[in-house]
């Protein structure tokens, strides 16, 4: 057995490379990070992949049907009465998009960075920090897309959607996921211990409980309402709820705009923190 033969052509003399910032942070091979993601999904146990899909379904069944039997109908967007299950279903979709994106961009990134050392291996190749981050965010969004599609199927089968506009809930779920994922990855760059990572969960749980997910925020004093309305999940919930019945107001644009701005800022923030996150 001799040393491996040389068969690779002089691909090395790639003239000049990419300009400026990209030359330092990207090889243009982002797609191969995504390729790995799909390969792993193919090899993985399907149970693991679909497990994330069941969480909102269980909530919907227990709260929507169980609690819903006590509550009856509530006022939906625009004031038309809808069933309690139909009231919380869009909120659960928004929450599930948030949870999935946060999990993938924080805990998952943290684990692969510090323990599995997956990114260390990737960054020893031509890949740059940008390629790894963009590829991983794409995979997080793809997973969110699968879950959103599945959940849409469930609520449609349960007769909880009454408008064609509900189809738009799937791309909007992706926008919500992008906003949270991009922000989550930037925040992860500041953390180095599991204890710090726990803070993320401490912030998310109350946001889920109080962002008009399970009941309208009008039950709170005005000051608390303003605080909740400043947080992202409330906008996601309201936007989804309006889409589910096809009722739009001026606030629809505010909710949509909120996530567009959040995504742009999140991507910019993560981009700025890339080298701190991946390079020591």
């Amino acid at each position: 057995m001799t040393a491996p033969a040389r068969t690779l052509d002089v691909r090395r003399s790639r003239s000049g490379g990419l300009p400026g910032w990209f030359a330092a942070n990207s090889s243009g091979n982002t797609a191969t990070v995504i390729e790995r993601g799909f390969k792993v999904i193919r090899n993985q146990n399907w149970i693991i992949i679909v497990s994330g899909f069941f969480e909102p379904v269980f909530y919907l069944l227990s709260m929507g049907l169980g609690l819903g039997a006590l509550v009856g109908t509530v006022a939906g967007p625009g004031g038309a009465p809808i069933s309690y299950a139909a009231f919380i279903a869009p909120a659960l979709l928004a929450t599930s998009a948030m949870n999935g994106a946060i999990y993938d961009s924080t805990w998952n990134v943290f684990f692969k960075l510090r323990f599995a050392k997956l990114y260390e291996g990737m960054l020893a190749t031509s890949l740059g920090p940008f390629d790894v981050a963009a590829g991983e965010i794409f995979m997080a969004l793809f997973r969110g897309f699968l879950y959103a599609l599945g959940f849409m199927g469930v609520i449609t089968a349960m007769g909880l959607v009454t408008s064609w506009w509900a189809l738009a809930m799937v791309p909007v779920a992706l926008l919500i996921a992008l906003g949270f994922a991009s922000l989550g990855m930037a925040i992860t760059s500041y953390f180095s211990t599991f204890q710090q990572m726990d803070w993320i969960n401490i912030a998310l749980l109350p946001m889920f409980m109080f962002s008009s997910t399970l009941f309208p925020i009008t039950v709170f004093p005005q000051a608390v309402q303003w605080f909740i309305m400043a947080l992202p999940l409330w906008h996601g919930v309201e936007l989804m709820r309006q889409l589910s019945v096809g009722h739009f107001e001026a606030s629809t644009w505010v909710h949509l705009g909120y996530f567009l701005v959040m995504s742009v800022l999140g991507v910019a923030f993560t981009t700025r923190r890339l080298r701190s996150l991946f390079l020591r």
Partner: peptide, 8 residues
């Protein structure tokens, strides 16, 4: 400044 190219 040229990480990807160097690592190739």
């Amino acid at each position: 400044t040229h990480g990807p190219e160097v690592r190739a």
